[in-house]
Amino acid sequence: MSNKRPYDFFVTGTDTEIGKTFSSSALLQALAQRGTSSVGMKPIASGAELRDGVWHNEDVDSLIAASSVKTDTALVCPYLMQTPAAPHIVAKQENVDISLPHILASYQQLTHAAEAVIVEGVGGFCVPLNDTVDTADLAQQLDLPVILVVGLRLGCINHALLTAQAIRARGLRLAAWIANTVDQDMLYLAENIAAIQQRIGAPLLGQIPRLSGNPTDNMKTAATYLNLNILK
């Protein structure tokens, strides 16, 4: 379905809680810093809190803050569910029917608003969305090149290579990967990055260190570690 826009990407990760949203936000900031209008999208988010009568999800809010184009939140996140758990379980409990055509239509509307749309998946690459489709099906339907966020911690080499294999098995192009430091005390961190780089068959977009400070500053700082030139 993709019209092969040069800066539209699907961002997935080796697991949950490994920095997909942070990396996606940094990517949006990096695009904006080079003058490319950008908007983030998280089609499915589970885990929300009510603030001033409006349901908010931390990941969705981060993507909105990082986007240079502001648009309808319902397009950014077509499916926002309340319970922080696996989406297929929460969707059933909250009577939500996750429809890939609806997500694809929302993505298409976002392409009219910005030069770049960064679509962040949920959890890892093969997370179920309902009884019949998973996140890999969504990525396949979007037909966007994939950026893989690898959380640097023990076990990351295996997770990275298996996920890269799964991405290619769906006929998708692994455009690049991001090394995001989850465990700053990880032994042989540089050696792990080198081992992945030698085997994964995709360029390293950047290595993001563990940052301390407020989220907005961290996001802007993280953007400086990404080399967008390799995406051309």
Rank of each mutant, 00 (worst) to 15 (best):
I147W: 02
T135Q: 13
A190V: 08
S24N: 10
S67Q: 03
I167P: 08
I193N: 02
Y225R: 11
V117S: 01
D97T: 04
A223T: 10
L31V: 10
L31W: 12
T83R: 11
N57F: 05
T216I: 15
A113R: 13
N95F: 02
D61G: 05
A195E: 14
P209T: 05
E120W: 11
T132A: 13
G47M: 10
A179V: 00
L31A: 12
P87K: 01
A164I: 03
R34K: 08
A85F: 07
I208Q: 01
W55R: 05
A175N: 05
N180S: 00
Q93A: 14
V122P: 03
A85P: 03
M186Q: 00
L28R: 00
S67F: 03
S25A: 15
L28Y: 02
Q165K: 13
W177Q: 08
A116T: 00
D72N: 10
Q140A: 13
L152M: 15
L148F: 13
A113C: 10
D59E: 08
T16A: 15
H112A: 13
T36I: 15
T36S: 12
N158L: 10
D8M: 07
L138G: 11
S24H: 07
S212F: 10
K20Q: 13
Q207A: 03
T21E: 07
I196N: 06
S106K: 01
S23R: 07
P215C: 05
D137A: 15
Q140P: 04
I200Y: 04
V182A: 09
E191H: 06
L189C: 01
A32E: 10
K220L: 15
A116N: 03
L144W: 07
G124D: 09
